[in-house]
Amino acid sequence: MSLAEPDNMIERPSDPIDDLVVVPRRHYGIWIGMVVALLFAFVIIRALATNPAFAWDVAAGYLFHPSIMRGLAKTLLLTVVIMAAAIVVGTIIAIMRVSPSLVLQSFASAYVWFFRGVPALIQLIFWFNLSLLFRTFSLSLPWIGPVFSVNTNDFMTPFVSAVVALSLCEAGYLAEIIRAGIKSVPSGQSEAASGLGLSYGQILRRIILPQAMRFIVPPTGNEAISLLKMTSLVTFIAVDDLFYTAQSIYARTFETIPLLIVVAFWYLFVVTVMSIGQHFLERYYGRSDKLDESPFARLIRLAFAPRRVGVLP
């Protein structure tokens, strides 16, 4: 560059370009907004700090209380088990929905319609009370006779009904997400794969689903986060999760607000960890298009890029 344009090297006493100064636009609206926001923050923090009813010291004392820890573990266990089951069921339902068979398609649509349509709490209580519908479950074969028989109440413990109810419900949402992901993969991909001789299962597993992942992971992360919070519904059927444990403590001690703070803290903590995990998962599944920059990322980059006169991004 310097070789090609020797003219630039010569000192010229007053090049008008050198004297140009950029004067940034004034954003008065943003300034006013900032002042209002800071004011609000101040008021809220002051209320939190000075109102003795929050009893921060009590909350801190309960933060690592053994029963709270056990409740937290139960909440995490529920979330993981329900999410895993929901992913399996949701994937099956989604594959049924994109299958060529009209019967499978209709079955899957009906599933999604029902389990997304009925409120989770009602499904939960329904499964918990399954014994009102079926007293026992038994299997008897034509010539062999009864093989086994169990009382519904013996296996439909609160924990099992919570897992069954919430994972069936969650699967309805996940099925839709997964189906949209599968649909987002161009049809040429499966065409090329079947041309190469890959089987239907291989095409789904190796070609379609990995590409669908980029569309599936972000909303699934959101689902996992809302599922974590949805598990607090199990309090209604007396599963000793985080919320239930806190409730049973403040029912005795009347330290309601501090315990709710403890519960909120742990939910926030886990959600934060999950969001970070989601970020890395998204990056992993997006690795084949690292050339792309989302419009939002570009905006951020340009906003923080040093400004230069006459240089377009």
Partner: peptide, 18 residues
Amino acid sequence: CKRRADIGMVFQSFNLFS
């Protein structure tokens, strides 16, 4: 699948696994 594997196909839109 096995027989299809003996017949190669090249598409207008390439269709490489992205």
